[in-house]
């Protein structure tokens, strides 16, 4: 007896579902020329800026734009089987390039996006002013205890970066013979919380940091110079080996774009536009600041930048 009522409810639902399918399939697919482009946005603000500016441009051409949010490494699998079309900011995942671009040919390189990333050791500018010797790493020697924290004991604390980022600081500290304890506080928001808290108290802190980053407009930070690069110097401690091979400053990172093979070879008018997409560190920082710092709606931010930078956009559009 109950069963019948359940069946009645199920019936109503089924009719509804069927209606949806009919309507849904009739409504989709207009604009056959460009279709839908799927961009992947990553968690940091710079990536959001790229994605939404590109979105504004593509929508201006009449494309539909979908946005996925998949983490940096898994997104390669998504590119490989066409679940997402483009990643506009990739910090040189060499292993993935080897596997997906060179070996499987399921992903294609899209060239630099114009932004140059730089990783380094940073301290607050007020600290640099008080201790000009910190301009190079040698100045840190013997002064490590200035950076003491509850978890570093008698050593100084070096605040490591997000575990997902390229880094070699623990090895570098060892190679340079500095009396720092490498402390990782985890993901970027936690790391920012940690150093910004100390920054606000005008205390001493040294940490892994990078540009471009919208927070650089909010906090005054200065870089500590590390030993110069030499041939064969490594940046990613993942490869292991002797610590000596890490004893140099981080290289500048050319930020790349990568595309799904399907998208690149599919003749979409969006592809050449995204391939030409390229802007500067300053451009990106401005948009990122609007979105992350001022909580502007990302769509609005993208449109705002596009409206204000016609010349650059026209170049991407090939006009």
């Amino acid at each position: 007896m109950r069963g019948r009522k359940l069946a009645a409810v199920a019936g109503v639902l089924a009719v509804g579902a069927a209606a949806v399918l009919v309507v849904g399939s009739a409504g989709a697919r207009s604009k056959a020329s460009c279709g839908t482009v799927t961009l992947n946005e990553q968690a940091w603000a710079g990536s959001t800026a790229n994605t939404y500016v590109a979105k504004a441009v593509l929508e201006g051409m009449g494309c539909k734009v979908k946005i996925t949010q998949i983490a940096e490494i898994p997104v390669y699998q998504a590119l490989a089987n066409g679940k997402t079309d483009a990643v506009l900011e990739d910090w040189q995942h060499v292993d993935q390039y080897k596997q997906y671009i060179s070996k499987q040919h399921t992903v294609v390189a899209g060239g630099p996006n114009g932004v140059v990333g730089h990783i380094g050791w940073y301290i607050p500018t007020y600290l640099m002013k008080a201790h000009p010797e910190f301009a190079t790493w040698k100045g840190l020697k013997g002064k490590e205890s200035l950076f003491k924290s509850p978890e570093s004991g008698s050593q100084g604390m070096f605040l490591g970066g997000d575990p997902s980022y390229v880094q070699k600081d623990a090895q570098l500290i060892q190679a340079l013979g500095l009396n720092f304890k490498f402390v990782s506080v985890g993901a970027e928001p936690a790391q920012v919380a940690r150093w910004s808290q100390l920054y606000k108290q005008k205390k001493a802190v040294i940490f892994y940091w990078y540009t471009p980053q919208y927070l650089n407009t909010e906090y005054q930070l200065s870089e500590v110079k590390l030993p110069p690069r030499f041939k064969g110097c490594q940046d990613d401690a993942k490869s292991g080996g002797n610590v000596k091979q890490y004893k140099c400053a981080y290289d500048n990172t050319i930020i790349e774009k990568v595309f799904s093979k399907k998208f690149a070879g599919g003749g979409s008018p969006a592809y050449p536009v995204l391939k030409r997409f390229s802007w500067s560190n300053q451009d990106q920082e401005i948009v990122a600041k609007w979105i992350a710092g001022d909580h502007m709606n990302p769509d609005k931010a993208g449109k705002k930048w596009v409206a204000a930078n016609k010349a650059k956009v026209n170049k991407w559009l090939g006009k």
């Binding site: 968690a43 940091w44 603000a45 959001t48 949010q69 993901a187 970027e188 928001p189 979105i291 992350a292």
Partner: peptide, 8 residues
């Protein structure tokens, strides 16, 4: 997740 990075 995204909020954590840009907008707690």
């Amino acid at each position: 997740t995204n909020g954590l990075y840009t907008d707690p």
